[in-house]
Design a protein around this nucleic acid. Structure first.
Length: 527
DNA sequence: TTTAGGG
DNA sequence: CCCTAAA
C-alpha cells in the first residue's frame, strides 16, 4: 500500500490548459481501465499519452506521467537521454519487460522512487510508441525477445502466429495499450497516424479505444496528461517528462505527515488507492501476473515548464472517485502561493469492458491560455493536432446527471459554447439577508454541467486545493462560486464518485459513476 | 487571505 | 452553503 500510496502521492502539477472563460477548456483525457490507472500509478515506467496541443498543454498524462511528474529531487534528468530515449525505438517491448521486472521485484515504488528518469536506464524505450509495431515483420527471434519483454519470460515456441498473437494480446491487455495502439490482425499499430506529438497524443485523441484481437470490447484508457510542475532545472531542457520515478513521493508524503496530520481527504485518497488496487482486475492482466504488462507504448509527456513563479509547487496526484480521475493535488505543504502553472493530469478510466471511453480534450491554443503568468513556458514537447479534441461531458453526480463522452475531433468548441451558454451566464448573485444580519447567497445555485466540467478541468490543471487559483483562472466569469464553493463542490464530487459505485463491479467507482451518468447527451444538460 | 473541514 | 480554525 505504501507503494501505491506513495505513487499516488506523486506530486505533479498538472494543469489543463487555459482556463479562463475565454480560453477553451482543454481537457484531454485518456481512458484507462482501472487497472491501468492503478498501474500507472504504480508503474511509472510506462507512459501512455502525450499531449500537446500546440504549445498548449494537453493532458494526457498517465500514470506514468506521474513518474515523470514526480521529480526526484536528487536526480536530474538528462534531457538528452530523455530525448534519446523517447526517440529511440526499442524493438523489444522493453517497457513491458521492465515493468514486469519491477513489479516482480516489488519495487514499483522503486521505480518510481528511482525517481530520476535517468536513473532508470533500464527503462523501456518508449520510442516504440512512436511507430507502429508490426509484429509481422519480426523474426522469430525478435518475436521471442518481444515476448520476453512483454511477458517477462522466455518462450520456445516457434510458431510465429502464436507468438504474435500472444504478444498482441499481452500488449493489448496491458493497460499500456491505452489509446494509441490498435491491434489488428496481429499487428500492433498506432491508431492515429499523424499526430505530431510523438505521435502518441494525436492518436490518442482520435481514438482512444483499442481493439483487441479477441474482438473484446475495447477497454478504454484515458488519461489526462497533466503537467507537473517540475523544478525548473529539470524542466530546463525540455519539458519532457521524465519517466523517473519519483522518490519524492515518499518524501513528500513524509513531509506532509510531518507538517500536519493526515486530513480527511488524505485518508480518503489513501483508501481510494487501495480500493483501486483491488478493483483493477478485470482487464488487468499485467497486474495479476505481477508482471505488469505495460503498454508497450509509453508516451511522452509534455511537461510544461513553469518558470513563472519561479517557485515550484509540488503536487501529488489525487484520484478522483477512486480510480477514475486523477488530478494533481497540492502538496500538503502549502503556504506558499500556489503556482499557476501546472498541468494537471486528469484521467478517466472507465474500465468497463466494451465501454467506449473517450476523453475529452479540449484543444487550446496557447494563447487561449490565460495570461496567467506569462512565464509559463508552454513549450510542450510535442504537439498533437489540436483538431483532435475529445470532449468529455461529465454530469454531476449529485444531480444524477450523466456524463457522456463525446469524441469529436475538432468539435471542441461546441462544448465550450454550450458550456458557456449554460453556466456562465448569470452573474447576478442573489443574496438573502439572514436573520443574523449577514447575507448569504441565495441557496443553491445549481452547478451546471459546464461548471462542473470547468471545475474538473481546473482541478486537473491547477490541482485540487488551489481553489483560489481555479476561481481566478477558471471561474473568473462566475462571480458567484467562490473558491470555497469550488472546494465544496469538489468535495461533493469526490464523495459522489465513491458513493455511486456499486460494489463488485470491476469498474472503478469513478468510472462507473461517469458511465452511469452518461446516458444523456451533453446537449441535455440541466441548465 | 486562503484552505481544509465541520456544521 | 456557511462558518471557523489554521496557516
Amino acid at each position: 500500500m505504501d507503494k501505491f500510496l506513495s505513487n499516488l502521492q506523486v506530486e505533479g502539477d498538472g494543469r489543463l490548459v487555459p482556463a479562463t472563460e475565454d480560453e477553451l477548456m482543454e481537457v484531454e483525457s485518456l481512458l484507462i481501465d482501472d487497472r491501468c490507472g492503478m498501474h500507472i500509478d504504480a508503474e511509472p515506467g510506462q507512459t501512455v499519452g502525450c499531449i500537446s496541443n500546440e504549445g498548449s498543454s494537453s493532458w494526457m498524462a498517465q500514470l506514468e506521467s506521474l513518474e515523470g511528474l514526480s521529480q526526484p529531487k536528487s536526480k536530474k534528468v538528462d534531457p538528452d537521454k530523455l530525448n534519446g530515449r523517447l526517440e529511440e525505438p526499442v524493438p523489444s517491448l522493453a517497457p513491458s519487460l521492465r515493468e514486469s521486472n519491477l513489479n516482480q521485484s516489488g519495487s514499483v515504488g522503486e521505480l518510481v522512487a528511482g525517481g530520476s528518469p535517468l536513473s532508470v536506464t533500464t527503462k523501456p524505450d518508449f520510442s516504440i510508441l512512436k511507430g507502429e509495431i508490426c509484429l509481422d515483420n519480426l523474426s522469430i527471434k525478435e518475436l521471442h525477445e518481444t515476448f520476453k519483454a512483454t511477458f517477462g519470460r522466455e518462450t520456445t515456441v516457434k510458431d510465429k502466429q502464436w507468438l504474435k498473437r500472444r504478444i498482441s494480446m499481452g500488449l493489448t491487455n496491458s493497460c499500456a495499450v491505452s489509446t494509441n495502439f490498435i491491434i489488428k490482425d496481429n499487428k500492433f499499430a498506432k491508431k492515429g497516424n499523424e499526430e505530431g506529438c510523438n505521435g502518441m497524443y494525436g492518436s490518442f485523441a482520435k481514438d482512444p479505444s483499442i481493439v483487441n484481437q479477441k474482438g473484446l470490447p475495447t477497454c478504454l484508457v484515458g488519461q489526462l496528461d497533466y503537467h507537473k510542475v517540475v523544478p525548473e532545472r529539470r524542466l530546463e531542457n525540455h519539458n519532457i517528462d521524465d519517466y523517473s520515478g519519483s522518490d519524492d513521493h515518499e518524501n513528500e508524503q513524509r513531509a506532509a505527515k510531518r507538517v500536519r496530520k493526515p486530513t480527511k481527504r488524505y485518508i480518503e485518497e489513501f483508501s481510494e488507492v487501495e480500493s483501486k488496487e483491488s478493483s483493477g482486475r478485470l482487464l488487468n492482466l499485467a497486474k495479476n501476473s505481477g508482471h505488469g504488462l505495460m503498454s508497450p507504448k509509453s508516451h511522452v509527456r509534455l511537461v510544461r515548464n513553469v518558470s513563472s513563479g519561479g517557485r515550484t509547487v509540488v503536487t501529488r496526484l489525487d484520484s478522483l472517485g477512486g480510480s477514475g480521475i486523477q488530478v494533481p493535488c497540492v502538496s500538503r505543504v502549502r503556504r506558499s502561493r500556489p503556482r499557476k502553472n501546472f498541468m494537471a493530469l486528469l484521467k478517466f478510466n472507465p474500465s468497463g469492458m466494451g465501454m467506449a471511453a473517450t476523453l475529452v480534450k479540449k484543444a487550446l491554443d496557447d494563447h487561449s491560455f490565460p495570461p496567467d503568468d506569462g512565464n509559463e513556458d508552454r513549450v510542450l514537447k510535442a504537439s498533437s493536432t489540436p483538431e483532435h479534441v475529445h470532449h468529455l461531458f461529465v454530469g454531476m453526480p449529485e444531480k444524477g446527471k450523466q456524463f457522456s463522452v463525446m469524441s469529436a475531433a475538432g468539435l471542441g468548441n461546441n462544448m465550450e459554447m454550450k458550456m458557456n451558454s449554460s453556466g456562465d451566464s448569470d452573474d447576478n448573485v442573489v443574496t438573502v439577508p439572514t436573520s443574523k444580519g449577514g447575507v448569504r447567497r441565495k441557496h443553491h445555485r445549481a452547478w451546471t454541467l459546464s461548471e462542473v466540467m470547468k471545475l474538473v478541468e481546473g482541478v486537473s490543471r491547477y490541482g485540487a486545493g488551489r481553489w483560489s487559483e481555479i476561481k481566478r483562472l477558471v471561474f473568473a466569469s462566475y462571480s458567484y462560486r467562490t473558491s470555497v464553493d469550488l472546494k465544496d463542490k469538489w468535495r461533493n464530487l469526490l464523495k459522489a464518485s465513491f458513493t455511486q459505485t456499486p460494489p463488485d463491479t470491476g469498474v472503478s467507482s469513478f468510472s462507473y459513476f461517469l458511465l452511469t451518468c452518461s446516458s444523456h447527451p451533453p446537449e441535455n444538460h440541466d441548465y
